[in-house]
Each structure stands twice: as structure tokens, then as C-alpha cells.
């Protein structure tokens, strides 16, 4: 079970990285970045998880809850990741206006 979850997380991350290294479209790069981020969010959620745990709103009838802290961290990470993605898209729009291409390999005025 753990092996499966671990490898899911890692494969997700590696897939995102692979896309980041091989895809040339800027939009696709943003998507790949989100995939990489998804892997770490899954990791956060697995950290605090309990098989029989309930969601962390304290009620008298329940006595086993999942950890609330990783969820809070994941929420923060989601917001930050969303901001980064939005920034990437804004850059993509702006770059497309200037360079008339979304190909990362063509964005090479700065080199050497």
C-alpha cells in the first residue's frame, strides 16, 4: 500500500519534471508545473491521514480525526501554487504578444 502511494507521488512528480524538460509550449510548462505541485499536495494529505479518521471538526460523537495541520499546509501551498500558475499564465500572455510564439526554444534573446 505504502509502496503504491509513494510511487504514485514520485511518478507524478517525475512526470511533471519530464514534461517540464521536454515540452516546448509555455502553457504546457505551466500545466506540468501544476502536476509537480499536485504530487506534493498528495504527499501532504497522506502524511496526516488516518484510515478510520474523520474530518477535523470536533464533534462529541467522533474520537478519531485526521491531522488538521497538513491540510492547512496543503491549503496554503495550493494558494501559493495557484498564484505562481497565474503569474506564469500572465507571463505567457505577455510573451506571446511580444514574441508571437509560445515555443520556449524561441525565447532566446538573452544568451551568452
Amino acid at each position: 500500500m505504502e509502496l503504491i502511494i509513494n510511487s504514485t507521488i514520485i511518478i507524478l512528480f517525475i512526470l511533471g519534471l519530464y514534461g517540464l524538460l521536454t515540452q516546448r509550449n509555455i502553457i504546457k510548462l505551466a500545466i506540468c508545473f501544476n502536476i509537480m505541485e499536485a504530487s506534493i499536495l498528495i504527499f501532504f494529505l497522506t502524511v496526516g491521514y488516518k484510515p478510520e479518521g474523520s474530518y477535523p471538526i470536533i464533534r462529541p460523537e467522533v474520537d478519531s480525526y485526521v491531522q488538521p495541520l497538513p491540510q492547512a499546509l496543503a491549503l496554503t501551498a495550493i494558494v501559493i501554487g495557484a498564484s505562481t500558475t497565474a503569474l506564469m499564465l500572465a507571463f505567457a500572455i505577455k510573451l506571446y504578444k511580444r514574441y508571437h510564439t509560445l515555443d520556449i526554444d524561441k525565447l532566446r534573446r538573452l544568451r551568452g
Partner: peptide
């Protein structure tokens, strides 16, 4: 140049 550099930095 600024936009390109910013994007690379961003990635």
C-alpha cells in the same frame, strides 16, 4: 528582455 528573463526566473 525583462519579460523573458522574468519568465525564465519564474520557471
Amino acid at each position: 528582455h525583462g519579460l523573458e528573463a522574468g519568465f525564465k526566473y519564474l520557471v
